[in-house]
Design a protein around this nucleic acid. Sequence first.
DNA 1: TTTATTTACGTAAACGTTTACGGATAATCG
DNA 2: CGATTATCCGTAAACGTTTACGTAAATAAA
Lengths: 336, 336
Amino acid sequence: MGEINIKMLALELNLSAATVSRALRDSYEISSETKARVIEMAKKLNYEPNPFASSLRQQKSKTIAVIVPAIANNFFSLAINGIEEVARARDYHVLIYQTHENSEIERSFLMRLSSGRVDGILISLASEEVDKRQLKEVSEKLPVVFFDRVHDDIEGVKITTDDYTSAYNAVQHLIENGCKKIGYLMALNSLSTGEKRLQGYLDALKNNGFPYQPDLIITNSGTVEQNYSLVRNFIAEQKPDGILSSIEDLAMPCYYACKDLKLTIPDDLKLISFSNLAHAELLNPSLTTINQPAFEIGVEAAGILFKIFNNRRYAFNETITLKSNLIKRESSMRAE
Amino acid sequence: MGEINIKMLALELNLSAATVSRALRDSYEISSETKARVIEMAKKLNYEPNPFASSLRQQKSKTIAVIVPAIANNFFSLAINGIEEVARARDYHVLIYQTHENSEIERSFLMRLSSGRVDGILISLASEEVDKRQLKEVSEKLPVVFFDRVHDDIEGVKITTDDYTSAYNAVQHLIENGCKKIGYLMALNSLSTGEKRLQGYLDALKNNGFPYQPDLIITNSGTVEQNYSLVRNFIAEQKPDGILSSIEDLAMPCYYACKDLKLTIPDDLKLISFSNLAHAELLNPSLTTINQPAFEIGVEAAGILFKIFNNRRYAFNETITLKSNLIKRESSMRAE
DNA sequence: TTTATTTACGTAAACGTTTACGGATAATCG
DNA sequence: CGATTATCCGTAAACGTTTACGTAAATAAA
């Protein structure tokens, strides 16, 4: 197609391509009259600069990548929302990749991105064992910011929430509401994020004089169906009177399982979950959640990335921790 | 940085850049021994081709854009999920943009994308009046596929659901369950999608001998708070005994409003909503939904786009309609 | 054996920008 | 008035690929 480019503009204006380019980039070397002429003509001819030529020459893309385990997830979609807003404000483009918790897919994305297609990467790690070498290699080439799903062993800037404290407080809350046998639905166990949540659970129990019972901890396993039977069996066999779930996808099955087992929440079983469900309030019963500031995490992560772009400092280790919110609702309430 | 490129590979292998390029693209002009040598060296040196140089030369980007009103939305995040999976299978990249239902933002995205940054666009229109001229201009330059939020006046390939029938059947269901005064919570009214849902509602009423009562139809208005008071006032004043909501964001307020007004769903008010809530089952009461095949819509839309890429036919008008599912739950059930 | 064809590669141009370098003119200064 | 400086613009190279065109050698056809 007869796409209009700088040379045509130059021809039309009796100027050199260099001058046109400089005028469009508002260079000080160009007189204001010429700038006006160029801009007018560019608008008239509907000129749109070729981003590839520009990226090739300048070695930057005005694009960032976001790698997440899944998009269709309340937490991640909110985080992406935040990221996109920040990016848009700076006229950056946002590429999206989902790993489906698979580190092999994750690795391949990272490899593909190391070509310079993006100026930086925002990543929330897959729960499978991560390829640290690959990650290190990429982060030497371009700035990488981790959010939520992080790994302490990997150097870099990280945006997280106070996972340990949140889990601790949630368990404390369950205990205060009378729970004697508190189960933990574990996930993300290969990540620091998961470790901290677990540790918060363990420490809260310990500090309240509860014994350590490994049987009260189960780990998620893939599919929705597997998770359901896992949770159902756990509740049926262990008969916990309180549960802290480290992810939403393990808490929802509790509702279904309790229905099936004719148990009522919170009377028979009190439930708290890390969750960004928009309408936890409307569940039956309403769900007590540890609500992560997902949108803000996205905003913060993207903000940091842009700061790095400006400062060119990207070989450092820093963790920014935002606070989650324990929102107490019916599912964890003591019977009156 | 000393990024490795084709010239370096060529130097290292005592070949020309052309040969290396051709070898990497598996050209028939290159002997298999040479190909092997090149591939080995490329792997050894961790060569990653520069996507901008390639895009510049080939005039294509291996990237598609997805424009949606919002990402943090059950329907759209599922659709994007489907799109991303299809794109990944073909080694394509996915750019994400959200319009926040603002047609000015939408317009500016379309403009930015007409530079050739992407090979095609998947778009779900903002509910504000769309800029048809801009859209037409873009779709003359590159293939555009519309999904869900479409406009019949705009030519192009469209993936939608059976909005009319779905709305019609939902109202029919409400009537069968005893509703006498059925309200409609309208949205997307500037789009065909919205018109069809409305028409389904209207026709179902008419065919059942119900009078046309404009007071029973209200239109959404921006913020969550505004929507809440709108819905609350509507229920308080009109006292409908049934409601069909054209979007999830207008149905949730019904729950809160009924709580506040001491009305019970479904006894005082039966409710059905277009919705892709993952756990409508767990609401109190569980919500009867018109569930759109969001993931499949994404897959279908992306699939069509790739077909267009291959056939180069992209000046036609075609609509593909997938079926939604009316999932009957407590919120619309007749009292026993 | 001569000619035609195939095979395997190299040369150089092209994609559309940006920018280092240079230069002409006009304004300023000593 | 000559020298310096500021202003404004052009020339050409560069970014890293891909590909049209050309060609030498090897093979096949005549």
